[in-house]
Structure formats: structure tokens, C-alpha cells
Amino acid sequence: MNPLIEVANLSYSYRAGSGNEVAALKDITMKVFEGELLAITGRNGSGKSTLARHFNCLLTPVSGSVEVDGLSVSDKCNVASIRRQVGMVFQNPDNQLVSSIVEEDIAFGPENLGLPAEEIRRRVDWALKTLNLKNLQYESLNQLSEGQKQLVAIAGVLAMKPRCIVLDEPTAHLDPRSRREVIKNALRLNREEGITIVLLTHFMEEVTHCDRMIVMDMGEIKMEGSPREVFDSEEKIINLGLDFPVSAKLAEGLRKQGIRIPRKTINAEELIKSLCQLK
């Protein structure tokens, strides 16, 4: 797989209220590969959001480099082209929706790209269809639930036809049902439309669906690998302020009772399958 985003020795610091420099990222080196579903997790304030904001030029490195498809984010000339390729969805839908009507909000991004009216129309219709929002097309945004608003926000980014979508804790304030809906759609965009997805999240159940994960703490990458590899050590994960997926906890508990569940069982499907074989 080709790397789409390449981060090398990235450091970033900001000035806190007291005037002190606070290091938010320390010497980060990582890659996002074309077509993958990458989870970045870590406790609040671990630096994951700061890192992700470098991916589409909302922040530029203090030192080190970030390149998107070979273009450096530090070069002002690349900003427009990078933002076309990497879209971003934020935590609170109310703070990212510009318009008051669903389809008009989705059109905002393509309009900024200066596309002709028919092309914008086509893309808006496509985004509405892809995320099953057709029935909400003309709704007023303040009549929607938070979960629906978040799907509209994703549609707004999708209509720009990016190669990569960064989702910055998109489900943090949603109810479980909407959360599942948002994640299901993110997975589908990845599998069916081939869009690279970077998912920032605190929910371990969501992480288990990803191809690869990165755990951050104190501005550094602490763990990296497939969920199966990372969720091998419960103690380490807990010390990083995170949790173990329930399936993994249950598997661990059953192993302690002498029941032969394979190690590295991290999701419900695998656990149920192993248990059914034992029956």
C-alpha cells in the first residue's frame, strides 16, 4: 500500500494562557496508507487531535514535516490542493454546519471548490444517496437529531470527493444507536468507496473494526499495530487511560476459568465462534 500521508519527526507546541510553551506533539513519525482504516486513540489531551489537524493544513509543523501525497503542508501554495484530498469531520456537528438546510450545507464544500452548478448538484445528490440521507434533503438542520447532523457533516465532506476523511471523535456526544450508524457509514465509505479513513476515538469497540491503530499519550506514539496486536496487553492499555474491549475482557475472564479461548480474541464475532466450537 502506498502512503498517502507521511509524517516525519513532527513536533508542535502552543503557548498556554500562562505564556509557557506546551509541547503537544513530540517527534512523531507515522504514515497513513491509501485505502486503510486507521484508528488513532489516546486519552483527552494526548495530542491525537493536534496530530490530525496537520493532515489538512489546519496546523503547520513547528519542526519536522507532514506530506500529503508528496505535497508539504508547510507550503502555503499546497493548502487548497491538500484540503481537496483530505476532509475533516469534527466532534460537535453544530459547530461545523454552516447553512440551515441539509442539502445547502452539503453544497457548501463543493461551492468553495468553484465547481459548476450541475456538478455540485450531482455531488450533493450522490453524497445524500451514499449516506442514505435522501429523505432529509430539504430538512432544516435544527430539526435533526445530533446523530443525523453528524451524518450531514460527513456528507458535506464526502461531496468534496476527498481521498481521505479524518473523523475527529465524531461519536463522542452521540447516543449508542447514532454512534453505531456513524461508524457503520464510515466503514462503508472505506470498504465500498475506497476512501482512506482516519478515526479518532475513545470507544474501544469502534477501534476493533479498524485495520490498524495508533495509541498516543503525552504527545507521543506509545503503541502501533493491528488492534489484535495492541490489545494484547490489558495493563499497558489501561495505563494509557484507555480500556479493553468488552469481548477481550470476557475472553480473558473465560481463559482464567480454564476455558480454551484463543488469545488475541478482540471482537464479539470471534468470541462467539470459539465458544460455539466448545459447546
Binding site: K249, G253, Q257, I259, A268, I272, L275, C276, K279
Partner: peptide, 29 residues
């Protein structure tokens, strides 16, 4: 319970409501 409910469907004999992992471990065992 997402897991235990599916286990019940797969023929396991478990209580209908399970509220903790410990409870689930013992019931499954």
C-alpha cells in the same frame, strides 16, 4: 449482553439479563 444474547440464540443456556463481565464469565462457564 450483546454477546450473551447472541450466545443464547446459538443455544447456550444463560440468564436473559447479564449485567457484568464476571456474571457473564460464570454463566458461560
Amino acid at each position: 449482553m450483546n454477546i450473551t444474547t447472541r450466545l443464547i440464540e446459538a443455544g447456550f443456556n444463560l440468564p436473559g439479563a447479564i449485567l457484568s463481565i464476571d456474571q457473564a464469565v460464570h454463566a458461560i462457564a
